[in-house]
C-alpha cells in the first residue's frame, strides 16, 4: 500500500508537466494544421497564423513551474497532497491547451478571409488561457500547504 501511495505521489509531482505537455502537443497540432491550411489561401499575414498556433504551448511552461513548486521528498505524508494538486492542475492545463488549440484553429479559419477580425477572434483563446492561468496560480498557492517532508 505504501508503495502505491509513493507512486501516486510521483505521479502527482510529474503530472502537471506531463499533462500540460500532452495538452500543448494536441492544441498546437490542431492550431498548427489550421495555420498550414490558411497559408494556402492567404497572400500575407502568415507569421501571425503560425504565431497564434503556438499559443497552447504556454500550458507546458505552467506545468513545469507547478512541478518545480511541488518538488519535495515524496513520502507517505506528502504523496496525497502531491497527487491531488498535481493531477488536478495537470488535467486543467491539458484541457485548457486542447480547447485553446481548437479556439485558435477557429480564429485562423475565420480571420484568413477577414483579416480585420484577427485581434477579436483571438479573444476566446485568451479567455481559455485565463482559466489555465487560474489553475496554475492556485496550484502554486495550494501547493505551499503540502508538508515539506
Amino acid at each position: 500500500m505504501e508503495q502505491l501511495i509513493i507512486a501516486m505521489g510521483w505521479a502527482g509531482l510529474y503530472g502537471p508537466m506531463a499533462l500540460g505537455a500532452i495538452g500543448s502537443i494536441i492544441g498546437c497540432a490542431i492550431a498548427g494544421q489550421a495555420a498550414i491550411g490558411a497559408l494556402l489561401e492567404t497572400e500575407s499575414g502568415h507569421g501571425r497564423f503560425i504565431g497564434l498556433s503556438a499559443m497552447p504551448s504556454s500550458q507546458s511552461i505552467y506545468g513545469i513551474v507547478v512541478m518545480f513548486t511541488l518538488q519535495r521528498p515524496v513520502t507517505v505524508e506528502t504523496s496525497p497532497g502531491l497527487f491531488s494538486v498535481g493531477i488536478l492542475a495537470g488535467v486543467a492545463l491539458l484541457l485548457s491547451a486542447v480547447y485553446q488549440g481548437s479556439c485558435c484553429a477557429s480564429a485562423i479559419n475565420s480571420s484568413k478571409s477577414k483579416p480585420e477580425i484577427f485581434g477579436l477572434s483571438i479573444a476566446p483563446a485568451a479567455i481559455v488561457e485565463g482559466f489555465g492561468v487560474f489553475a496554475f496560480i492556485f496550484a502554486l498557492v495550494i501547493g505551499g500547504s503540502i508538508p515539506a517532508q
Partner: peptide
C-alpha cells in the same frame, strides 16, 4: 474526428 480535416477546411476560401 472533430479535428480530422482542420487543415483542409482552413485551406478553403470563405
Amino acid at each position: 474526428k472533430r479535428h480530422q480535416y482542420v487543415d483542409l477546411l482552413a485551406s478553403l476560401p470563405a
